[in-house]
Design a protein around this nucleic acid. Structure first.
Lengths: 246, 246
DNA sequence: TAAAAAAATTGTTGTAAAACAATGTTTTCA
DNA sequence: TGAAAACATTGTTTTACAACAATTTTTTTA
């Protein structure tokens, strides 16, 4: 880690890319108020919370599968992909992270290592909090506990859903499902695809080539509009039917 | 529900198969002492615990996906399969339950419905405890909390592992993996397959026909010994290699 | 205990999707 | 700014596996 006077940030010496912005003096000034902040305030623990902001550029790794979890990472801006290492350097994207979203909470549930990788799809701002403090909060605060438990449980449910669909659906249904998922995530039927075609394939557990193929099929059929990274779902109901039909 | 004098048990009127054995007067007499019992004893809550024993015959449903969770079900003897409903009446078996194993704990984590089905592979004895009491214990007892969190976290990890393998491995690797999984479960390289060939297929996300095929291939190759339901892994390392190679 | 149903086995066929290939396009960065 | 790398697209080939079919064996149950 070395200090760069010009940019007024810390650069990690490993990649010289991951930037460590000076620690918050005060969360009150933060534009992205998070649940951990609200909870610490409620519990009178602000002084213990020493959050650190980190910025990641596109393609940079935010956390690596199997590495020890030291911090709860809150994605406060940007997009990131969450994926597991498959065989033969193939990846399966479990989902896309949008703010606000915590990474690393499994440590609280007894898994001290990250169960998946997260890498930035766009510039990402994160706020990182020592995991031990979050653990302490978890055990002391029922509402916080409930919140984390619920989010953890949702993760389990979504992975189980993915297990079924990736195993039993064919490529058109898989891509349709991914598109609907992305629209839900962006809360709009029109959105910018932060994923490459290959990554859209990884999200759908198909090859990049087939992702392209299905995308242009859907375009020809008038189900979607695609121009580069811009996607618009024109006939969502039909896509939903394709997804459901398998 | 009606009472059957001959068998001295309750039979549910829906199926007339599910048997409700009289409630325990005292867990002390139970041959299968479980964690919930130990924890209630520790917490001085024995009087609140009113466990009910239920017996299920082979093929009977112990719990149904999406149904409301009313009890924590402890499988105290027998084998059961845990599976999700896929498309077109296809099932994916997530794993096999062996004693002692709790079903329905996701309710504590904010998912009030069963996320999967469980049906008996053999005669199964279960002990069922009101879920609200377990919730109460969870919130009051740190050690108990830790234990359940860890088990929940393990479930997540195993499903993620399955996600990768079922997506990227081919049938021989899938079956090899299933066989190793079963051996681990039975804590022996020689075990009785409680699953049918079709179910072994569902565990491996392949057809029953291919499960048979691979099994006889492995037999011919001297990797395993199979006689009906009796399976013995002769060359576990080779099977592991096949599984890892994908 | 006989008849019926379910499970196991083996061979054959059809097909969806991966793999490969070739080419054009965009992005990266030295 | 220009070369190299990464990405996108489309067509062709290969292949692993599901689907189907037919027969044998085992299990269930009336």
């Amino acid at each position: 880690m070395f200090y760069n006077n010009f940019f007024n940030v810390y650069l990690s010496d490993a990649t010289a890319k991951m930037r460590l912005i000076e620690p918050h003096k005060n969360c009150k000034q933060c534009q992205w108020k998070c649940d951990i902040y609200f909870t610490t305030r409620e519990m009178g623990m602000q002084h213990e919370l020493k959050p650190v902001q980190m910025v990641y550029k596109k393609h940079e790794t935010i956390c690596r599968q199997d590495a020890a979890i030291t911090h709860a990472i809150n994605l406060v801006s940007g997009n990131a992909k969450m994926f597991v290492n498959g065989l033969f350097d193939k990846q399966i994207i479990l989902g896309i992270l949008m703010p606000a979203n915590y990474i690393g909470l499994t440590a609280i549930f007894g898994s001290p290592n990250y169960p998946y990788n997260v890498t930035a799809l766009t510039h990402c701002h994160t706020c990182q909090v020592d995991i031990d403090i979050v653990k302490k909060m978890y055990h002391a605060n029922h509402d916080f506990q409930q919140m984390l438990n619920q989010s953890f449980s949702k993760t389990l449910a979504s992975i189980m859903k993915k297990l079924v669909s990736l195993n039993q659906k064919q490529i058109r249904a898989k891509v349709a499902e991914s598109l609907i998922y992305l629209a839900q995530l962006h809360e709009s039927d029109q959105f910018m695809l932060t994923l490459s075609r290959k990554e859209l394939g990884e999200l759908s557990a198909i090859t990049g080539e087939n992702a392209v193929r299905v995308l242009s099929e859907f375009k020809k059929e008038g189900l979607i509009r695609v121009e580069g990274k811009e996607v618009c779902l024109l006939q969502k109901e039909v896509l939903q039917k394709i997804s459901d039909a398998g």
